[in-house]
């Protein structure tokens, strides 16, 4: 269910015509989610997908948007969007707000348990 990973494009935060939108590739199509200025650098938000699934969107300090599944596989709660963003060796991750396991934002791999991965989604801002 993970989309093919493409390098996430840095966001142009606004365009001449107004606020740029964040899009996430899911089910083979790009879905518009929200205006990029709804994201706070260094934090995440949750978004509802058309199929009822939940994703967590993050904006890092370089302006890049990342998307992974919102469900924390260790507890079953839909809370990853509320974790703290960090980076290790330049690679951004989110730490689950419940039991603090870290997930790489590009791949969805859990940095604290090799056997665990959450879905990761390609994003773009346009």
């Amino acid at each position: 269910m993970t989309d093919v990973l493409t390098p996430n494009a840095p966001a142009a935060t606004t365009t001449a015509t107004g606020t740029a939108r964040v899009e996430v590739r899911t089910g083979g199509v790009w879905a518009a989610v929200c205006a990029v200025d709804h994201l706070v650098p260094g934090r995440g938000v949750a978004a509802l997908l058309p199929d009822g699934g939940q994703i967590a969107l993050f904006l890092d300090r370089t302006g890049t948007v990342h998307a992974i599944g919102n469900r924390d596989p260790f507890t079953g709660a839909y809370v990853l969007s509320r974790g703290l963003l960090g980076s290790v060796d330049g690679a951004p991750f989110v730490a689950s707000p419940l039991l603090k396991q870290r997930f790489d934002l590009a791949s969805g791999h859990c940095l604290d348990d090799d056997t665990v991965t959450v879905p990761a989604y390609a994003t773009r801002v346009r």
Partner: peptide
Amino acid sequence: GEQAALQDTNDHHLANLQRNG
């Protein structure tokens, strides 16, 4: 502002996160 990004979810939402979200 930037401070918002530093806070644990509890401080960020001014409430205590429980196991079901």
